[in-house]
């Protein structure tokens, strides 16, 4: 007599056949719990900064006060888990060091300039709440807006910085004015006058800049730089961008959420002699006593648990396959 009862599944098969919904639910619970635990317990997990982040930190800590840094921020909030933490850490360092900056997007992403301005406003609000000086638009930083064609813009900046940037920004209480009249920009004539050029991106814009921008080597304090271009990229873009770091075509690279935590760690602890892989005797004081661990560290536990979950699930699937094979004599 035929039976409608399904064949009972073995333990090995069960291990391999968790439903999609179950996997999704586990991920939601694990990540949400991790973020909440981090938020309410204020966890600070250990981290060992890599050479790319150390060199990046060393460069932005070495540039002279009052210099102007160009920040090409091509990211939107879709990658804020990684990019926002990096960008916030960068802004905190620049503001604490009284370094002026011009922020713009050159990747054709229309939302990016506003996303960057909102992050600056958020950091400014925190500074005011902490009794620090507000970083003032026009006098301390300017927004150069959107350059839809990054390739052409980079070439134009190399050819003539002054004519490549034909933009206005708003001085306090005044109508929009040519950015070249701003204290941030007025001293710049050629691209080598920029203190550093930092790219915050989730895409391949690093390729575009490496191919088109050429900087003369410079030494800031104890930090010799072969180029002024540095990158903060998402984890996905890390391996590609790392090529340029290895060949010294960028001065440093901060990769993904782990990179954001590395920068926050360096802000807290600085670099002690012998710690830097590139500059052995370099010593840099951090910003002890200030708010250094922020968005990066807030998500770091979630990175751990999500990675851990991924590893556990892959092991589960493989153990299940192995058990099933053994049971069926290697046929499954």
């Amino acid at each position: 007599m035929a039976t409608n009862d399904p064949t009972p599944r073995s333990f090995g098969q069960r291990l391999q056949s968790l439903s999609r919904q179950t996997v999704y639910l586990i991920l939601i619970i694990v990540v949400s719990a991790s973020v909440l635990i981090s938020k309410f317990m204020g966890l600070t997990l250990p981290n060992k900064p890599g050479a790319g982040s150390q060199d990046f930190f060393a460069a932005i800590m070495a540039i002279p006060e009052g210099s102007t840094v160009f920040i090409q921020s091509d990211v939107t909030n879709s990658t804020r888990g990684e990019s926002a933490g990096q960008f916030e850490a960068l802004l905190r360092i620049l503001m604490r060091r009284n370094i002026k900056f011009a922020v713009f997007c050159a990747s054709g992403e229309p939302q990016a300039p506003q996303v960057a301005i909102d992050v600056i406003a958020r950091i400014n609000a925190q500074r005011i709440a902490n009794g620090e000086r507000a970083y003032e638009r026009w006098n301390d930083w300017v927004s150069l807006g959107l350059f839809p064609d990054g390739r052409a813009t980079a070439k134009a900046m190399m050819a003539n910085l002054r004519t490549a940037i034909d933009k206005k920004d708003t001085p306090p209480g005044k109508p929009p004015t040519d950015v070249w009249q701003s204290p941030v920009m007025e001293k710049l004539k050629v691209i080598d006058d920029i203190g550093l050029y930092i790219l915050v991106t989730a895409s391949k814009t690093s390729d575009i800049l490496v191919e088109r921008l050429k900087f003369a080597p410079v030494t800031y304090g104890d930090v010799p730089l072969r180029t002024k271009l540095g990158c903060m990229v998402t984890g996905v873009m890390g391996p590609e961008t790392n090529n340029y770091y290895r060949s010294s075509q960028i001065f440093g690279v901060v990769i993904g959420l782990n990179g954001a935590v590395e920068i926050e760690h360096l802000m807290e602890n600085g670099i002690k002699p012998g710690q830097s892989e590139t500059y052995r005797s370099l010593s840099i004081e951090g910003f002890k006593g200030m708010q250094n661990y922020a968005r990066g560290m807030a998500y770091y536990l979630a990175l751990h648990t999500a990675m851990g979950l991924l590893i556990v699930l892959v092991i589960m699937g493989n153990v299940g396959m192995w058990l099933t094979r053994r049971q069926t004599g290697g046929g499954a």
Partner: peptide, 9 residues
């Protein structure tokens, strides 16, 4: 170059 870049933008 700047002029062509403007056109391109």
């Amino acid at each position: 170059t700047s002029v062509v870049a403007d056109f391109s933008n």
